[in-house]
Design a binder for these strands. Structure first.
Length: 113
DNA sequence: GGCCTGACTTTAG
DNA sequence: GCTAAAGCCAGGC
């Protein structure tokens, strides 16, 4: 899938694309809202992405806990324990944390790889 | 069809 | 370095 997953996903709505992209994020890696938004089609739709995650209709199939802010800090988590649990899960997956933030230098997911 | 909300991001003070 | 405000987008009512 070197290319943009084809135009098949293009037909899908923004939220659907976000779910698909997030689902492709490997364990131990995280992605920022802005990154997801850009991959979904709109780099400025980071807010919309957050709202979609908040609704999280695909909770079990979408690792929403792998989505973090642009600076690596975690934000509201609708799950149990909130961001605390979110951070814990990421740590369990191998994500490197620096204090309360994620080490973007190592744990940020790159679609190129 | 229009207004409000929200898990964001960036720039300025 | 931290806090505050403005801007942009999609979804829900």
């Amino acid at each position: 899938m070197t290319n943009q997953q084809s135009k098949a996903k293009m037909s899908r709505i923004f939220s659907q694309k976000v779910y698909e992209l997030l689902r492709t994020v490997p364990k131990g890696k995280v992605v920022t809202y802005g990154q997801l938004a850009k991959m979904a089609g709109n780099a400025k739709a980071a807010r919309a992405v957050g709202m979609i995650m908040a609704k999280n209709p695909n909770a079990p199939v979408v690792p929403c806990h792998r989505v973090i802010a642009s600076d690596g800090s975690l934000h509201g988590y609708s799950g149990e324990g909130g961001v605390s649990t979110k951070k814990k899960m990421l740590l369990s997956e191998g994500v490197v944390f620096i204090g309360d933030k994620v080490d973007l230098s190592q744990s940020v997911w790159n679609p190129s790889r």
